[in-house]
Amino acid sequence: MTDLLRAENLCKSFGSIKAVNQASITVPAGSITGLIGPNGAGKTTFFNLLSNFIVPDQGQVMFNGQPIQQLPPHRIARLGMVRTFQVAKALSRLSVLENMLLGAQDQIGEKMWQAWMPQVAKDQKQLKEKAMTILTDIGMDHKAADFAGGLSGGQRKLLEMGRALMSDPKLILLDEPAAGVNPRLIDDICGHIQRWRKDGMSFLVIEHNMDVIMSLCDRVWVLAEGSNLVDGPPAKVQNDPQVLEAYLGS
């Protein structure tokens, strides 16, 4: 498999604290790759560096064979790498459907001078159909007209994934998709992720829930104190003495 995303030697310091120190990762195309590590290991910061929400001090990020560490976050998203957030960000005062529609790329009418054009209505109608298909898929079609601010934590996670899906991404970065979600819904979320992978999408997943990591991931990378500890298939990583030590302390 070719590497869809390859990050090498990323570093980021906040003052004297090295949050991420020489961390690397590769995500092969079509894979579900896991990123785990104890709290404070720098996983979320690492995500922010990959998507350039925080500019790395040094290091290189290649996406789909193109260097992206110089690009602003929205350009990276347009290339097909979309992220979600650890605390799911629903746009409260927009409806669930509007949240979904925001995800679509290259919409006619997103430019001010195109907003009056008659084609906008037709384009929006198609996008609404697409959004409803995805919402039905994730079991949220009955919520389409509600304000997103009224959703539960788990539904917000689902909405974020659906919204990311609207942009037809190549790679979705999921930051703790199962955190604070009830076990039933976790199973649903895992099922959706596996199905979307079959449709050709790749995932990079931060997660603390080991069951989720074990059942989803092809390969797991462990981060501790901002640096790579080990990486390998989930079963191997789970029993690695170094990983156990990092989690449990010595």
């Binding site: 929400f53 347009r78 005062r93 927009l94």
Partner: peptide
Amino acid sequence: SPWGRVLKAIREDEEVPKALG
């Protein structure tokens, strides 16, 4: 219009439209 939707999204939380391109 979709243009206005982006503005409202920025009002709610500008990280989200940024993450969506």
